[in-house]
């Protein structure tokens, strides 16, 4: 694996955080992502747009009583991209710390 092949869409720190949360949670609403990752509405919305444009996440509108909630989930393509990213990061760590492997 070539470290220069890292996918910039997912490698960006905040987006990697969003993908990690979605992988563990299955799906998450906008408010949970915002509070967990300490982001503003605008900042989170922009990152979600980037990930959705790449086909890595999907959004859906839901209702909790009268309150509208936006749910975000990983697509199969996003799950696969996250796995590749994690494998690459492990590969990089393995090269830097060869004695521990």
């Amino acid at each position: 694996m070539n470290p220069f092949d890292l996918d910039e869409t997912i490698h960006q720190r905040t987006r990697l955080g969003i993908m990690t949360v979605l992988y563990e949670a299955g799906e998450a609403d906008f408010a949970f992502l915002k509070s967990t990752l300490d982001l503003t509405d605008g900042n989170l919305g922009r990152h979600i747009e980037v990930l959705a444009a790449a086909g890595y996440v999907a959004t859906r509108r839901g209702y909790d009583g009268r309150r509208a909630r936006t749910w975000v989930s990983l697509t199969p393509q996003g799950t696969s991209a996250l796995r590749i990213e994690v494998d690459m990061l492990r590969d990089i760590v393995g090269r830097v710390q060869p004695s521990q492997n």
């Binding site: 563990e24 949670a25 299955g26 998450a28 609403d29 408010a31 949970f32």
Partner: peptide, 10 residues
């Protein structure tokens, strides 16, 4: 999960 705003996981 629903009250917290997350899904049921994988």
């Amino acid at each position: 999960a629903v009250r917290a705003g997350v899904g049921m996981g994988r």
